[in-house]
Every structure is written in C-alpha cells, then in structure tokens.
Amino acid sequence: MKNIHSYWAYVVLIVLIYAVVNASIGFIKKKEFTDKDLRIGLFGLIVCHIQLLIGLVWYFMSPWFAALISDAGAVMKEKSVRLLAVEHPITMIIAIAIITVGWSKHKKKTIAIEKFKIFSIFYGVGLLLMLSKIPWSNWFS
C-alpha cells in the first residue's frame, strides 16, 4: 500500500498542477469554460479522492498509526514521526476537502471566468497545502 500511495502521489501532483495552470490561464485570458476544462477539474478531484482512500488504508496499517496509539506524547516530540503520523494525514485531508469545496462551488457559477477563478483558488490552495506536507525525505531516499 505504501508504494501505491507513493507512486499515485506523482499522478495527483501532475494532474493538480495541470488543473491549476489550466484554470489560471483560463482566468487570465478570459477563455470560455469548456467540457475539457470541466474534465480536467473532475479528473483532479477524482485522483485526489483515490489518493485519500489509498492513504487512509495505508495510514491505519502503518507503524506511525500504531506509534500514535501506543504513545502519542513520544510521537509529538519527534519531528519526523509527527510529520508522518499527524501533520501529513491531517493536512492532506484538509487539502482534499478544500479541493472538493472548489469543485462544488464551481458548479454553482454560470460565468466562465468565475469557474476558472474558483478552480484556481481552491485547487491552488489544496495543491500548496499538499506540497507543504509531503514527506520529501521519504520520496528521495
């Protein structure tokens, strides 16, 4: 599960970066919001939710969850363990919730520039949160 979660993260990042760039260009250039733009946003939402499910399954199987349950105080004192046991999962859940809110809000808008703006802001904030709590040392070791 850990490997699946790690490799799928690359897909999530690529799709989210593409979605944010696409929405930002659409917003700046005042483009028409097309089915392609809708699908890019939807695909971003789907890959994030798949990653969330994989991550939750892995988390409850992981040694960090077991450590958190057995001795939360020790986990909170150790920066690297705290990142994996607490900060990473909570931040990712918040990021995916923000992306999901962005998806819901864009559906209520009828003007293309507003749809692009919603995607740019919500998907962008979600992406930044994700980037802030990726355990980079685990990816490159």
Rank of each mutant, 00 (worst) to 15 (best):
L38E: 14
Y59D: 03
A72M: 13
A95C: 07
I96R: 05
K79H: 14
A112Y: 04
W103F: 11
L42G: 05
L127K: 00
A85D: 12
N22P: 02
H88Q: 02
A9R: 13
L42V: 08
M76E: 13
M92T: 10
F43A: 04
S132C: 06
I17A: 08
F119P: 06
I134P: 02
L56D: 11
F65S: 12
A112V: 01
V125I: 10
F43S: 05
I134C: 02
D71T: 08
H5T: 05
I54N: 06
T91I: 15
L84T: 06
H49K: 03
G41I: 00
K108W: 09
F140P: 07
W136L: 13
D35V: 11
I54S: 05
Y7H: 10
L68D: 10
I90T: 09
I98H: 00
L83W: 06
G55S: 04
V75S: 09
L45T: 04
A112D: 06
A19Q: 02
G41M: 00
L16G: 05
K36C: 06
L38V: 12
K133V: 10
M61Q: 15
V47Y: 00
T91Q: 09
C48W: 05
K133Y: 09
K77T: 14
A112L: 01
I50C: 02
G41C: 00
A66S: 15
L45W: 05
G126F: 03
W136K: 09
K29S: 04
I46D: 00
